[in-house]
């Protein structure tokens, strides 16, 4: 089953992450056209979901991954600041 995602809205990173999460349920091959990411979804043997259910869940996972990437980008500088502060007084840095 083919699931398509507009390139204007989704990065390849979000789709690759979602495909990784699905490796226990589906084989997902990714191709690019000029405007779309095309994901061919094939159910893995021995699991109970239909390919339609898998496609629906995969679309949702791509949305989640896209949001995660947005949040990571928005908070990267703060995360670095927090980690810097957290490790600045541990005594682990040496002289």
């Amino acid at each position: 089953m083919l699931a398509e995602f507009p390139k204007a809205a989704f990065t390849a990173e979000a789709i690759k992450r979602a495909a990784y999460v699905f490796m226990d349920r589906a084989d997902i091959s990714l191709q690019a056209t000029e405007s779309q990411w095309q994901c061919m979804i094939t159910a893995r043997a021995g699991q109970s979901f239909t390919v339609e259910q898998l496609a629906e869940a995969f679309r949702r996972e791509v949305l989640d991954q896209d949001l995660r990437l947005t949040i990571e980008a928005k908070t990267e500088a703060t995360r670095t600041a927090i980690l810097g502060l957290a490790f600045s007084r541990t005594g682990l840095q040496g002289e």
């Binding site: 600041a81 927090i82 980690l83 502060l85 957290a86 490790f87 007084r89 541990t90």
Partner: peptide, 13 residues
């Protein structure tokens, strides 16, 4: 941010 760093440091201590 300071409080989060303190909590993280406590966890990793």
């Amino acid at each position: 941010i300071d409080l989060l760093a303190l909590k993280l440091r406590t966890k990793l201590a």
